[in-house]
Nucleic acid binder design. Structure first.
Lengths: 105, 105
DNA sequence: TAATTATATCAATGCCTATTGATATAGTAT
DNA sequence: ATACTATATCAATAGGCATTGATATAATTA
């Protein structure tokens, strides 16, 4: 009999969602961005300057993160301030923990 | 002043390692394989049949996992039995938790 | 209005890697 | 030795996506 994780619909769906999340954060610049934002919300210019990243590339990665719901943005004058969506991160962290936790001491 | 995660050598190194780990597990078939093996060690033929995956492709993904140290293998007659390296998984899980945890309730 | 600053979009390129088909290796059984 | 089974390797292809350069949009200031 096939194991649950190959058959059970909910298990398969959870795994797919988890993989989607992992694909988003498994990019160095994006993970760095999340680190930066975790500390404090920041405008795009701060982010790309801190990371020595091209402005447009930074903008691209922010879009990826935002489309997935991991960050939000608000306009403030000329600047756009990005901040982290803790709840969403937490949601996916929990999903992920199903696959990484309970590997015991 | 640039935030720690952009400058501090150890922070940057940890992030790189974490990203390497994420790249390994952010592939659906590989995450499934880890799920399967977590349940119980298995030979390659069980794995690819459970996952409806080509034999050679399964072999390829197993190699990726093994090269990174997440699984081990031993020969048993004609078969090769793969098993999960709990300690290694745990090590990287901890690293990853630096980036995902403490997002509070 | 014109110029400047901050951000986003678009098109093109290149790289990485999953996938496939064919074949090789190696253990086992007849 | 031959045939068979299980696994691994190799070469080629294809698709996705990060990166780059150029340009557009939008807010602000002079």
């Amino acid at each position: 009999m096939k194991p649950k994780c190959c058959v059970d619909k909910k298990s398969v769906a959870n795994l797919s969602q988890t993989v989607e999340f992992l694909k988003i954060i498994s990019e160095e610049n994006r993970l760095k961005i999340l680190c930066l934002l975790r500390e404090k919300e920041k405008c795009v210019c701060d982010i790309w300057q801190y990371l020595d990243l091209a402005q447009n590339l930074t903008s691209h990665h922010l879009k990826v993160l935002k489309d997935f719901g991991l960050v939000s943005s608000r306009q403030e004058g000329l600047k756009v301030i990005y901040s982290i969506n803790k709840k969403v991160i937490k949601k996916y962290s929990k999903l992920l923990n199903n696959y990484l936790n309970s590997y015991g001491e």
